[in-house]
Nucleic acid binder design. Structure first.
Lengths: 222, 222, 222, 222
DNA sequence: TATGAATGAGGCTTCATTCAT
DNA sequence: AATGAATGAAGCCTCATTCAT
C-alpha cells in the first residue's frame, strides 16, 4: 500500500531498488541456465535433476519455477542460445562468401560445431528428445524457422557457385545437407567410445574430415 | 504304442512335444525382441517400459524375465543382432575389395546403415546409453572386439591402396573414421526433423553423400 | 482300466514296479528336504527360492508341489525332523538321569544344539518366521505339544532333585528355561559377527558356558 | 517492523518461522522412526514396507526419502539409538564397578536388555540381517567400534577381579561373552512362543537367569 | 505324474512439480 | 518473491504358485 509504484519511466525514489531487484532476477536466470548447462555437460541429459540445478545455483527448487515453467523450458532456452550463436557465425561466413571466400561458410559452420563437440552433441540429443516427447512444439517450430532462413542464405551461395560451374549441378540444398551430415558425423566420431582406442590423432582426423566437407562437389582440382 | 510316431530322428515318446515347446519358447523370445524394437523405434529409447513390451506381446511382465535377465539385456541382444548383420555385409564388401572392387566396403557399409536409418540411429543411441551407464561392460567389450577385427581388415585395404599411391597418404584409420563419420552424419540427416521440410529428394541426397564417402582421398579423377 | 490294481497286500505281477515307483517318490521327497536344508544353511532363510531347490534336486519346480503344498510346508518338515532328533537325544539324557547322572539331560541338550550351531539357529529363525506370519498354525501347535511332553519329563527330574535338596527350590521349569536360554545364547554367541574378532577360543568359550548351564542351582560345591 | 519480535536471541525477521519449520521437520523424522519401530515390533522385520510406514505417519511415500536415503537407513538409525542407550547404561554400571559394586555392570546390562525383550530381539535380528546383506558396512563398522570400547572397559573390570582371585582364571572375554549369551538367551526365552504356556512366572524366571549371570565364575559362596 | 512357462502382486526408489509459509 | 517439504505416479525387478501339456 505504502510502497511506491515502480514502472520504468518512474524515477521517484525507490525506483533504484526496484531496478536492482529486476537486475538480480535476470542474473539469477542466467545463473540457472549456466548451472544447467554445466550439469548437462558433466552428466549427460539423462540424469540432471531440477534439484541439482537449484543446488548448484544455491537457490531453492521452487525458485526455478519462478523463472521457467518447466525443466523442458530451461533446456529449450539453452538450445536457442546455442543455435543463435551458431547462426551468427554462419552469417559471418556467408558474408565472407559474398566477398569471394566461398569456403568460408563451410569452414565457419564446421569449426563452430567442432569447437566444442561435447556441447554440440548435447544439444543434438536435447533437441531430439524434446521433439520425440513432443514437448514445446511451438518453440521447436520457431527454432526450425530460424534455421530455414540460414539455409536459404546458404543456398543462394551454392546456387551462384553452381551457376558459375564451380560446383556440381545438384539441388543446392544437397550441399548444405552434406555439410551438416559430415559435421554431424565428425562430432559423433569425436565422442564415440568405439573409436577411442583407434584414433590416435583426433585433431588430424577432424582436419581430414573438414577438408572433405570443404571440398564437396568442387570441380577445381584439390 | 498307440502314440503317433514322432516325425524326426528321435522317436522317444514325448520328444516331439518337448521340441514344440522349446520352439514356442524361442518364438516368444523373438516376439519380445520384435516388440521391443518396434516400441523403441516408435517412441525412442527413453520411454519404453518393460510393461509396454509385455503388453505388446500380450504376456505378463514376469514372463519377460524368463527370457532376459534385465531390460538392458533385451537391448543388448537387439544391438548384437544388428551389429552382426552389419559386420556380415562389411565382410562381403571386404571380400569384393580383395578382388579389386576397392569401393565395395565403403558402399556396403554405407548402404547397410542407410537402409534403415531409424534403426541405425536407434542402436547408436542405445549403445551410447549402455556405455554411459556402464551396464553390461563385458558384453560391450565383446561387441567392440568384433568391430576391431572388422576395422583391422578394412585398414589392410586402405594401406594397400595407399601403398599403390591411389589414396592420399594419411594414417589408414583416417579413412575408416571418415567413412564412419559421413555415414553417421547421413543417417542423422535422414532422421533429422529439421531437414524434413527442406530435403525433397532424400534418396538423391543420400546418394550424393555416399558418393562423397566413396571417393574420400581418391587421387584418381572423379 | 486294464491296469492291475495296486495295493500293498497285492502281489500280482506289476506290483513290484508300483512299489519301486512309490519308493522313488519317497526318495525324491527326501532329496527335496536335503536340498532345501543345504540351501538354507548356505544362504540363510531370506533368499532360498523354490526354483533353487528344484534345480538342486534336478527336478521341475512343479514337482515340488506334488510333494509339498507350499514352501512353508517344506520348512515345517525340516523343523519337525530337527526337533525329533533333539527330542530323542534328550530322552536318552533323561534316561541317564533316572540312573543317577543328573547332569546328563543338560549336557545332552546343550551338546546336541551346540553341535551344529548353524543349523540350530537356522531352525530357530525358521520357527520364528513361521509363527510370526502365522503360517501353518496347526503344525506349530503339534510341534509345541511334542516339546511340552519333553518338558514334563525334565521337570520330573528337577522336582526330584529339589525334593532331595540338591537344587535350589524354585519352580522346576526355571531349570529347563534357564538351560534353554543359556544354550540359546551360546548358539547366538557362536554366530555373532560382533564377537567374531573378540573370541579367540570359541571352543573354550562354549565349554565355559555349558559348565554354567550344567551347574545351575547346584547346592553342592563346584 | 510490525512483525512480532522473535522470542530468542536471534530476532532477524523470518528466523522464528524458519526455526519452527526445522522443528517440524525433525519431529516428522522422529515420527517416521517411531512408526517404523512400532511396525517392526508388530510385524517383525520381514514384512514392514515403506508404504506402511508412510501410511502410519500419514505422509506420502516419497516424503520418507527426504529424511532417509533408504529403508535400511531407517533401520540403522533405530539400531544406533538403541545401542546408544544400552551403552550409556553399561557405562553407568562400569562406573559403579569402579566404586566396588562389581556386579553392577552385569546387572545393568541384563536389566537394560531384558527391560524390553521384544525390542531387544528385534534389533538383534535387524543387525544380523543388515550384516548378512552387507548393507551399510561403514555404519556397521562404527557400531562395532562403539561396542569394542565398551568391551575393553568391561574386560578391565574382569581382569582386576581375576587378579584378586575373586573370579575363576579364564580369558576375561569369557565373562563378557557368557554374560552376553545368557542375556541373549533370556531375551529369546522371554519372547519364545514355545514357552508361553509353560512359564507362569516370567519375572521370576528372568531374575533366576540374571542371578546366574551375575554369579558367573564367582569363587565366593553364593 | 512331471514339467517349467506364465503370472502379477508387491517391494523399493526417483523426481518433476506443487503449494503453504 | 523465495523456499523446500511433500507428493505420488511410474519404473524395474522378484518369486511363490498355478496350470496346460
Amino acid at each position: 500500500m505504502n510502497q511506491p509504484k515502480s514502472n520504468t519511466w518512474d524515477n521517484r525514489p525507490g525506483m533504484e531498488k526496484a531496478r536492482q531487484k529486476v537486475e538480480k532476477f535476470k542474473q539469477r536466470e542466467a545463473s540457472i541456465l549456466d548451472a544447467a548447462l554445466e550439469l548437462l555437460i558433466e552428466q549427460g541429459e539423462e540424469s540432471v535433476t531440477v534439484e541439482q540445478i537449484a543446488a548448484k545455483v544455491d537457490i531453492g527448487k521452487g525458485t526455478i519455477y519462478k523463472h521457467f515453467t518447466s525443466k523442458t523450458e530451461i533446456y529449450m532456452r539453452l538450445l536457442f542460445d546455442y543455435e543463435q550463436a551458431l547462426a551468427n557465425k554462419l552469417k559471418d561466413g556467408i558474408a565472407l562468401a559474398a566477398k569471394g571466400d566461398f569456403k568460408a561458410p563451410a569452414r565457419a559452420y564446421f569449426e563452430s560445431r567442432i569447437a566444442d563437440p561435447v556441447k554440440d552433441r548435447l544439444f543434438q540429443r536435447l533437441e531430439e528428445k524434446i521433439i520425440t516427447l513432443n514437448q514445446a512444439p511451438e518453440l521447436m517450430a520457431e527454432l526450425h524457422q530460424q534455421r530455414n532462413s540460414i539455409e536459404a542464405s546458404l543456398n543462394d551461395v551454392f546456387e551462384q557457385r553452381i551457376a558459375e560451374g564451380k560446383l556440381k549441378n545438384v539441388p543446392p540444398y544437397f550441399y548444405y545437407g552434406a555439410y551438416w551430415a559430415i559435421t554431424q558425423g565428425a562430432v559423433e566420431l569425436y565422442h564415440s567410445k568405439s573409436f577411442e582406442g583407434l584414433v590416435h590423432d583426433m585433431d588430424g582426423m577432424m582436419d581430414f574430415i573438414m577438408d572433405i566437407g570443404v571440398h564437396i562437389g568442387n570441380r577445381e582440382s584439390h
